[in-house]
Simulated assay, not measured.
Amino acid sequence: MRPLILITNDDGIDAPGIKALEKAMSALGDVWTVAPASEQSAVSHAITLWNPLRIHQRAEQRFAVTGTPTDCVYIALSKILPRRPDICVSGVNHGANMGDDVIYSGTVAGASEATLQDIPSVAVSLASYKSQNFDTAAAAAAKVAASVLKRGLPRGVLLNVNVPKDVGVDAPFKFTKLGRRYYGQIVTENNDPRNKPYYWIGGAELGFDDIPGTDCNAVADHCISVSPVQMDLTHYKFLDELGKWTELNEAAE
């Protein structure tokens, strides 16, 4: 039996990145796509609890959900897929998801939700908002997915892949830790037609910290970055230090 591959994203089911990913993954297994009906960028791991969700079948084994990437994976596993997937691949995102981006990213959240359900998962992004080099990014994702299907992943760990905009299919892979990116903190204020103020959050990418061994540095060096990301966010070293905060358990005077 061929592996069942679940594909999702946060750019929406009509995005060119997910179509390139579907094509690349079809060589590895039986592809089922369950993706947001509209763009859900930067929604992080949001799940819809207070509004109904609707499923629209676009084609055979291709479904749009009126919700977030997390909703898509949740519904795929509960209502759509004929059996448990062997792997989940989220992307190809249009724009990098490096360093701190993984906290905000809907692309990473789709893979995270599957990881929480003990499904080996990969998130893949094209590290450019202007480039349309999705085929190369999808080919890189297929290489990583093939290795994951062969080797598996530790429980609670996903792989976050970032592909530079200007590389070919023979670009080297680097195995990296998460870096640190920073953006301009811009909030634009304006007035609506009723003269009431509204605010638009934005901010241009300003750069990243130059830290050897990170995803940011790897992509800057024209390498495909592969970072293992764990769901356990506990800072174990500081957990030991917290044990010394004895005053928290002292009786109030």
Rank of each mutant, 00 (worst) to 15 (best):
Q132L: 03
I119F: 05
G12S: 12
P16V: 06
H56G: 08
F134E: 04
G110R: 02
D101E: 12
L149V: 05
S41C: 09
G12L: 07
A140P: 09
K143T: 08
R83C: 01
A138C: 06
E22K: 04
T107D: 06
D135Y: 13
A24P: 08
V34T: 05
N51Q: 15
C72H: 09
A146V: 00
A127N: 06
W32I: 00
E39Q: 12
S112A: 09
S147T: 02
V124D: 09
A141L: 04
D118N: 15
K79V: 04
R151D: 14
Q132A: 01
D86W: 05
C88H: 08
P82D: 11
N51Y: 12
G17P: 15
A35T: 03
K79S: 15
S147C: 03
T33E: 00
Y129E: 11
A42I: 06
Q117V: 00
Y104W: 04
K19D: 10
Q132I: 01
P36L: 02
A145E: 10
T107H: 00
V34P: 08
V92L: 02
S90V: 06
D14E: 14
I55N: 10
T68R: 07
A24S: 09
Q40F: 11
H45K: 14
V65T: 12
V124M: 07
T48V: 11
R62K: 15
D118C: 10
A146K: 10
P82Y: 11
P16M: 01
V92M: 05
P120D: 00
D101M: 03
N93D: 01
I13Y: 10
F134Q: 02
G67M: 03
H45A: 15
R83Q: 01
